[in-house]
């Protein structure tokens, strides 16, 4: 099967890969680019474990074809920290014990970061509805919601 050459920017760096027509962006990131921090939980856009930001929009990378990413700027969990400095959301997730197994965590962090870029002062309800596309089976969401709220407060300087 012939492959398409795709040129993107991933986490601020130029990245190229070859994609079969049916390859998802998720599989391209994981198998072609080697960024396995983005997870597959369902492959049908229902769990949010594969959340990435493409050209500023939060997407399920399992629902996007890799060839559609041509020319796009993509941000994954591997790009959330700056060097060895964690993003406030990452710090707060650890501080609040907002992860148990940690498998859904990359998706939650990317989705929460996308929320805070749009709304730096979300209510609890806004956090819960924004994150309703991300499934966590371990925590019951309580500590996740608290961590996101506190990260938002810290980032506002509150």
């Amino acid at each position: 099967m012939s492959k398409t050459h795709v040129t993107t920017t991933i986490n601020g760096e130029p990245a190229e890969f070859l994609a079969e027509a049916g390859l998802t962006l998720l599989d391209a990131l994981r198998d072609e680019v080697g960024l396995t921090g983005t997870k597959e939980g369902c492959g049908s856009g229902d769990c949010g474990a594969c959340s990435v930001i493409v050209d500023g929009r939060l997407v399920c990378s399992c629902l996007m074809l890799a060839v559609e990413a041509e020319g796009s700027t993509i941000e994954t969990i591997e790009g959330v920290a700056t060097g060895d400095t964690l993003h406030p959301l990452q710090r707060k997730f650890i501080e609040y014990a907002a992860l148990q197994c940690g498998f859904c965590t990359p998706g939650f962090l990317v989705a929460a970061k996308s929320l805070l870029e749009k709304n730096n002062n979300p209510t609890e309800t806004e956090v819960r509805f924004w994150l309703a596309g991300n499934l966590c089976r371990c925590t019951g969401y309580d500590k996740i919601v608290r961590a996101v709220m506190d990260a938002a407060a810290e980032m506002r300087g509150a």
Binding site: G37, T38, E40, E78, L86, F93, I94, A97, G102, P106
Partner: peptide, 19 residues
């Protein structure tokens, strides 16, 4: 205290089954 595997799990470094 912070969990010892916390940073790996919030940065995508932790290696799960399919990784």
């Amino acid at each position: 205290p912070d969990r010892p595997d916390g940073v790996d799990k919030v940065t995508g470094r932790a290696i799960y089954g399919a990784d």
